[in-house]
Amino acid sequence: MSRPSPVSDAVHRHWAMLRLIPRSPRKIDAGRLERLLAQQGIDVHRRSIQRDLEALSRVFVDLRRDDRSKPYGWSWNERSASLEVPGMGVGPAVTFELLREHLSAVLPHSTFRALGPHFKRAREVLAQSPNAKMARWPAKVRVAPRGQPLQAPNVLPSVLEAVYTGLLEERRLVVHYCKRGADSDSEYEVSPLGLVLRSGTMVLVGTFWKYQNISQMLLHRMSHAEVIDERVVPPKGFRLDRYIESGGLGFRCGKAFKLELLVHELVARTLRETPLGKDQKLTAHDEEYLRLRVTVPDTVELRTWLQGHGPMIEVVKPVRLRREFAEAARRMAGRHGVGAA
């Protein structure tokens, strides 16, 4: 096999470089481009990258240099078209149109805006497509969220970019974060381990400073985030999927426990299709109710789910949880004037 020519090497390097440059207001400097290109197997010095960027900016008018501070940052104009080789086909255009329709309510606005050029190009491709049936497909599919929908909170683009960079390059972050109930921000050094999108809220899973216990931070509560040159050292055996499955994303109230309920047949129908846990068992109790036994994490979310079904669910065991719900029911009745003197 013949070796690539210097021209093809340059084209490959330029193409990779242009795709790594973010849209304004985010930016990237030559040093970080050097590291990211090295991860793709492209070995080039940052001086060469700087020369390439200057040359490319004369060809691509939407490629901008921010020279207000060093190191200089490079970015694409926020409204510039996406680079595509090959061009977007009808199939990918349909996919982007479905994403636009169904992610608008769950993605942070800053993330959604970053996909804007792809959505715009998708609509153009579908408008020009001779395949009318395929172009009409997005109008035939909808996603209806369960429960009361809430608006996704805003995340600062600079915070999102720093978190993405820290996760990708496995480097620590310094963040300014306002805990719930606090009047002002506090500074934390965080080792980012994973990012979870949960009902429109972005949750950063990580550890603080040199500690090994896992914590969570909500990105919309961060007023500042920056990447520092300190490597992330994950806790031994940490796996994001395992952490989620163990109930780590819930507000923990205790360890996992055996739950026993009496559930109405209407609730049982749903639970047969979408069980509460892998060991869930449903057995007959009377004409209306079934007995459910399952092992579940002890979380606030579990209590919210149980309370949401009102009288259609009765907590049998553990006794402490049954008493907790009985007391909550008494307080709720009092708040609504039921049983008041």
Rank of each mutant, 00 (worst) to 15 (best):
L271M: 12
P153Y: 00
T299A: 03
G89Y: 00
L20K: 08
A139S: 09
A81C: 06
D66Q: 10
E265N: 13
M312T: 10
R79W: 01
N131K: 05
R171P: 10
A105K: 04
E170C: 09
P86F: 06
R272V: 08
E260C: 10
H336V: 14
G310M: 08
V263E: 08
G89V: 00
G41K: 14
S69K: 08
H109A: 13
H14R: 13
P4I: 06
R68W: 04
L276M: 11
L249C: 02
G250P: 05
L219A: 12
P117N: 15
Q151G: 01
R123S: 15
T299D: 02
R113A: 07
H220S: 04
W305S: 10
R142T: 07
T207H: 09
Q128L: 10
L259T: 04
G166S: 03
R68S: 12
G91K: 08
L83P: 08
L18K: 14
G89E: 07
T283Y: 04
T299R: 02
E260V: 14
P138W: 02
L126S: 11
V294G: 12
N77T: 04
S186P: 09
R26V: 01
S186E: 15
L168H: 14
V227L: 15
F325S: 10
P235V: 03
E97A: 01
H102W: 09
D229H: 11
R47G: 09
R79H: 10
M88D: 07
V94K: 11
G73Y: 03
H264R: 09
G166A: 01
L83S: 10
C253A: 05
M17L: 15
